[in-house]
Computed example of a mutant assay.
Amino acid sequence: MSNRDTRPVLVTGASKGIGKAIALRLGAAGYPVTVHYGRDRVGAEAVAEEIRSAGGTASIVGFDIADRAGAKAALEGLCGSAGAFWGVVQNAGIARDNAFPALSSEDWDDVIHTNVDGFYNVVQPLVMPMIRRRDGGRVVALSSVSGIVGNRGQVNYSASKAAIIGACKALAVELAKRNITVNCVAPGVIETQMTKDLPEDQVIAAIPMRRVGKPHEIAGLVEFLLSDDASYITRQVISVNGGLC
């Protein structure tokens, strides 16, 4: 018998795109899913309702991951009322692309504060409650191919996604003896709103598989990393990029 129904999972940035695909996949697999949103409450409600309509369990929560106090209050409130999360998928993030000489200080700060501080703001309040559960746990953070190889016009985004890799590797060491795994998933070019304006011909020419990825291809890996079959996988960065690097 599966014990997934006793393992609640938070998925941030789950109102659309990759986060939505992850939330739906985990909900279908039997995990109680908390669907996080930053601004799109309607989208989050729709995702939660889709999970429930398919027989799963879902709720929603809204907060800005860059707002440390707000995130902490929301997460501590959830843990206090519903109990500790067994898993967290830190997916939410932003991009503000531009050539480095033209990159504004605001675009640098917004990306770093949201993506890097957001990792701390979401994961840190959840770690001790997760440890106190005494039944292991999972942390999965979404990095990017940009954080591994660097991309033109994405100095800020590449820096933030590389920082997430370093944070996950260090946290994995801290939590390993608690049987809590920490891993990164590094997508390449995935078909989402964030990539819809990229020059398709140039992008596909750079990808050995000659196509962009689909959100469900990321969600499948995340589901595996949360499974019991992945209980000995930690401190890893797994790329899903069609051979891009």
Rank of each mutant, 00 (worst) to 15 (best):
S105A: 15
R132N: 11
A141Q: 08
M128P: 01
S144E: 03
E106G: 01
N156M: 05
W108G: 10
A102T: 04
L126P: 14
D117E: 06
G93D: 05
Y157V: 07
I112F: 09
A141G: 13
N121L: 03
S158W: 05
R133G: 07
M130Q: 10
V155S: 14
V155R: 00
S158H: 02
S104A: 10
N151L: 15
D117L: 14
D97G: 05
E106N: 11
S158F: 11
S104T: 15
G150I: 10
A102S: 13
G93V: 09
V116W: 09
S105H: 09
V149P: 00
A159F: 00
S144C: 12
R133S: 03
N121A: 03
H113P: 00
G147Y: 04
G153Y: 09
G136Y: 04
R133K: 14
F119R: 02
H113D: 12
L103R: 01
A99F: 13
L126Q: 06
N151A: 12
G150R: 08
V145S: 12
P129I: 09
V111C: 14
A141S: 15
N121H: 12
V145N: 06
P125I: 03
A99H: 04
G137V: 11
A95T: 14
R96A: 14
G136E: 01
P101I: 08
D135V: 15
R138G: 00
P129W: 07
V116C: 13
N156T: 05
A92N: 03
N156Q: 06
V123T: 09
S105Y: 07
A141I: 13
N115I: 08
V111G: 04
P129S: 08
L103W: 04
R133Y: 03
A95S: 14
V123W: 02
S158P: 11
R132K: 15
I112K: 05
D110I: 07
Y157R: 11
E106M: 12
R96G: 10
D107G: 01
V127M: 11
G118C: 05
G147S: 12
Y120G: 00
A92T: 08
V127Y: 10
Y157G: 11
H113T: 07
I94G: 07
L142E: 01
V116R: 03
D97K: 07
D109C: 13
G118N: 04
F119P: 01
Q154Y: 07
